[in-house]
Design a protein around this nucleic acid. Structure first.
Lengths: 399, 399
DNA sequence: GTGAAAGCGCTAACAA
DNA sequence: TTGTTAGCGCTTTCAC
């Protein structure tokens, strides 16, 4: 353990004694060096240097309007010499084009969103767009504030993963009049033409299939562990998929075990351990994401259960790390990075004036070491208490 | 596997038939609803509505200059009614204050940077600042371009994790005249007052300590696996720490095994497996990050080595996921989120005109299941070929 | 093909 | 305490 501070404390006040460095501008890195031409060239300077009008420079910059090749190269030279870069604020103010998009994710602690963001950032950069990022922390209230902030920043479009996609929330976003596409969200399908753009996998179907795999392996007592439905329509859709499969097989579906997203790592593990202990001996556990799945495996082991011997576990996401774990986590893989890229494609379609499109990306069920056939001799009742989790009766219309 | 498209394809052209929706503006979400007052109120509208001058509205908005309480509340009311939000471009253009910071990370696929970014974003948001994100992909060239782009965006400060901190690269960044702080970087210490701000852990010392732990466990043949030095001064600093510990113990340090950062998951694992196979039977492997550590454990196992029975493995970062793995990865934990927050604190110190400060955050060695005492009976030569990795002679001045 | 000039929305300086 | 006004840097008419 090491904790010390070097500099700052030892020689306070010693900032930048180099002559002529008396800039009014507040705090730069105060590296030595020559701060002389810190004038930050404007388009006017370029025009003067090239002996042309500012309008001409602008035309060269944007390829708008015709410019004589000779003039153009003179301008480009001046630009290079002065190291000129057009100021985004001025450009944005005048043209309304900020060349920036805004992204809202629930959290960056889940690698799936981080990876998706990476795809978004790269796809945007490729088009010369910057990416402004914000996170909601799974908080529905903060979420809408954050979107408003992004819009006020002047972003030309938004890629959002909302907590919820009820019509009023969609309307709140749409009300800003800024093109947007949802990523990962699982809105209820509506019949007609799509009212907004969306890039996602079909969580419901995916988890239904995963549950069927478990059932095919002979599991009858399958429990579901997910993030809080109030904060994640993904989690809810996945539960519905689970439920549909259980119903179809005539098996009792369990009430969902919901874990709040704000649970800290330790609290989280504790809560989870508690839960596992109180389960009425399921032989398989299906989790709404890999993070949960990994923690579930660990918790099960702490409770003396063998995975997959006593308990099979399935996750969702396909995080690379969960795949190299031992045993590897069986999961439903979704293409996170491609999801981000696809969302940006859809967004630019919208920005170009195209219609909303909804894209369902392919998911893949990945078998893994956490999967085994149900043991015939499994003890039906391992724990005494069934207060928290127990099978409920089959239900034909899950909601 | 599922891949289909709903909407868009099936009903092309059907966009938004609602009457009065013929907006010139290009593509919004085309949600139905009333797009009537899509005028996006300006400060002028607010002034008119409140019956005051624009200057007064501005004063209310920014708390600059005194405004009569009555007037102020009238203005605030108008703001609320019109749903006015000041346009960032106009504000930024006039005042030079964009209320945005820029962040450069090597990648978002490494959870350590994602988590740090989360800390940055939250700390910035708390101060009313937006966060513009960009990634370099560990590419030194792209890196500088990206910084320039960020600066052109008008960000008021930068938090950067550079590939390299040689003086010329620092100068290139400082030349923009925008306050910046480095995060995670490991510049060579220089005697005097710091020339730039920095938030990091001391990778060199940390890995030296970790190596000492291994040595204390009886390991004599300890190898080092890291990311390419050309792309990561962290990796290099960690190697130096490893080397220092080996030298101090009079043990032969090994040449570093460098893994390029752009290796894709599969290629990566293949290369790693290869490496492990060719190692001249080290009894311990120290890795420059947890991702590498986890992969190393998996690769070792694929080669029939027991971890930690045949090979002890240590990582770096303290990723939560590596800790819940089985066996849990021994590692040097660093406070990623706090690192991000600290960086932002330092940045705002700079923006406020304060001097550069360099902050070394505490690291912690975390024992784990991948750690065991060296077996006395370990076979010194397991593999025939030592072409890739073999011990080199001790060296008192690692470089 | 090029120049001149009018603002985009906002803040800050100056008057009143 | 409040109103008026001059731009910030840029794009985009509109003349020429």
């Amino acid at each position: 353990m090491t904790a010390l501070q070097i500099g700052g404390e030892t020689l306070p006040g010693v900032i930048d004694a180099s002559p002529g460095a008396r800039r009014v501008a507040i705090g730069n890195g105060s590296i030595g060096g020559d701060m002389s031409r810190r004038h930050k060239a404007t388009i006017r300077d370029v025009a003067t240097a090239a002996g042309v009008a500012v309008g001409t420079v602008s035309r060269v910059l944007n390829g708008s309007g015709a410019v004589a090749p000779q003039t153009a190269s003179r301008v480009r030279q001046a630009i290079a010499v002065l190291g000129f870069m057009p100021d985004a604020a001025g450009r944005s103010l005048r043209s309304g084009a900020s060349r920036a998009i805004g992204v809202l994710v629930p959290t960056l602690s889940n690698p799936i969103f981080a990876r998706s963001l990476e795809g978004i950032e790269r796809a945007a950069a490729q088009r010369g767009f910057s990416t402004v990022i914000a996170s909601s922390g799974y908080d529905p209230v903060r979420e809408l504030d954050v979107v408003a902030t992004l819009v006020a920043r002047g972003v030309e479009g938004l890629v959002l993963t909302l907590t919820d996609t009820k019509p009023d929330r969609i309307d709140a976003v749409a009300g800003h009049g800024v093109p947007f596409v949802l990523a990962y969200n699982q809105p209820k399908p509506n019949g007609g033409a799509p009212r907004f753009s969306l890039a996602t996998v079909d969580s419901r179907v995916a988890l239904q299939e995963a549950t069927e795999q478990l059932i095919a392996l002979g599991h009858r007592r399958v429990a579901f562990l997910g993030g809080a439905f109030a904060s994640s329509d993904r989690s809810r859709a996945r539960y519905e998929g689970y439920r549909a499969a259980m119903d179809a097989a005539g098996l009792p579906a369990w009430d969902p075990a919901e874990i709040p997203f704000d649970a800290q790592d330790e609290a989280f593990e504790a809560a989870l351990g508690d839960l596992i202990g109180r389960l009425v001996a399921p032989t398989a556990l299906i989790c709404s994401n890999d993070l949960l799945g990994l923690h579930a495996v660990a918790a099960a082991r702490r409770h003396g259960l063998a995975v997959p011997g006593d308990l099979s576990v399935v996750g969702f996401d396909g995080m690379p790390m969960a795949r190299i774990a031992e045993p590897s986590l069986a999961t439903v893989a979704q293409p996170a990075r491609r999801m981000g890229e696809a969302a940006v494609d859809l967004l630019f379609g919208l920005i170009a004036g195209g219609p909303p499109r909804q894209l369902i990306l392919p998911h893949t069920f990945l078998e893994g070491g956490t999967l085994a056939a149900a043991r015939a001799d499994a003890d039906p009742l391992r724990a005494g208490s069934a207060t928290i989790l127990g099978p409920t009766k089959p239900n034909r219309s899950p909601r």
